[in-house]
Design a protein around this nucleic acid. Sequence first.
RNA 1: GGUGGUAUCGUCUAGUGGCCCAGGACGCUGGCCUCUCACGCCGGAAACCGGGGUUCGACUCCCCGUACCACUACCA
Length: 511
Amino acid sequence: MDKKVRVRFAPSPTGPLHIGGVRTALFNYLFARQNGGSMILRIEDTDSNRFVPGAEEYINEALQWLGIGIDEGVCEGGNYGPYKQSERRDIYRKYVKQLLEDGKAYIAFDTPEELDAKRKEIANFQYDAKTRGMMRNSLTLPKEEVDRLIAAGEKYVVRILIEPDQEVKVNDLIRGEVTVNSSVVDDKVLYKSADDLPTYHLANIVDDHLMEVSHVIRGEEWLPSAPLHVLLYEAFGWKDSMPQFVHLPLLLKPDGKGKLSKRDGDRLGFPVFPLEWHDPVSGDISSGYRERGYLPQAVVNFLALLGWNPGTDQEIFSMDELIKEFSFEHCSKKGAKFDFEKGKWFNHEYLINMDDAALAEIFKPELAKHGVDASQFSDEYITRSVGMIKSRISFVGDIWDNAKFFFVAPTEYAPKDIKKRWKEDTPETMRRLIEVIKGIDDMTSANAEEIVLGWIKDNELHMGNVMNAFRLTVVGECKGPHMFDIAELMGKDEIIARIERGIENIKPVVE
RNA sequence: GGUGGUAUCGUCUAGUGGCCCAGGACGCUGGCCUCUCACGCCGGAAACCGGGGUUCGACUCCCCGUACCACUACCA
């Protein structure tokens, strides 16, 4: 009885894909994969005024980066194309005509100015059964006049004819049945002759029907127009094959009120776009998760948990696990405030659990960016160094800050650590330490540690002071991995050289 | 203003009438570990919007109020 699952993600190419849109795409994808269905990418470019060059390419690249696969679309092809609405004019024209002929819609000549005037004149003005009798349309004008106006090239729109006082029921998989009285839905514009294009509402219904979409999974902002869509399916006589509706809760601002917007990212300092976006008109650059050093799996995982939960305590999910566990029953009805700190934590988790060698590959370009020739170091050396520091980073970009000492000897030493750990007698102690290290044959971490610590103990030196001064000369500051692990990896010569440089360059802070 | 939706720790959330004097996670915080910074481990503070019902029993069901969100374009 159930038809094949076919879902669509239908963005408008009016700018970069917003993170909320990404979440919608993700849920569509998860549901499609879970049910062995198809994921369609449809470009809704029915507003010629808002077209932005590059936006469509951006959408494709972003979805690809995140691993949200598309089965049918402009790039992928498919049997239900074209997948770009601006290329479907002929189709829409045919269905507009059908509606007109069936008396389900009518032609209206009211100009935007006339409508504005009416809205000012009448409180809560709405183009509907109560008001259309006083407007300029094919219901009030004689047929000859209508024909004359059209022939004269007068711009017009086609509006749906809504029967008042009908109970319209929208069945939503997350919210249950929502009932609205048709008297509050207006005679929406379905088609505008000015650009020979339908509006979203008409195009959406026609395309979903023709593309045999089984589930319309979209943001909650569409819920208020869902009754109109139901009425459109009825007007076309497609009620029986109408798709199942699912309205996802919105992504909200972290602070304050309202939907998450581009501005919030700028204001609060986190990306609201998956990829960096260069606005072709304003030249503005908006930061992206990818460029910020996020792993796509972490972004996906984080987004999935915004509005959905597994019903268990598990929080880390691979895409495959999400596909397996996802369900609308466990989707929240409530909008979710976007919490950047939690997103950061997810990335940290993914970085920590990442294979050291894989992380090293990601890090190599960063090395080059900082003027380090990666070929100077063996893969093993790079791999082991990132392995040692990965527990203290949240982003790919943090690797360099934490691991640079493995590749470049410190030239500056942290003043606050000098103050705390570099005393008058420290240089002498460090000279003695060099002698001790020179005597170590096997620099393996545990062995070197035993010898050095034994020396500290036998000479009744202060463990914290000696070790931190040692660390200061090698790392440049008092932080980082276990000292003897560092020493093992860098080798005896390099360690001794660094201690010598430290003795020469570090001057005690005199107060 | 109108219509619709939603309402559990600061945030994401579990909870589908008794298992809840409400569980997990992020963040915050005390401690342990320790040569440092992290990680890790052990602890802590922190919530059922208000009022009426229904019921032997409500975080859970109903109603009212309140708050918040969305929509209210020839944009999507």
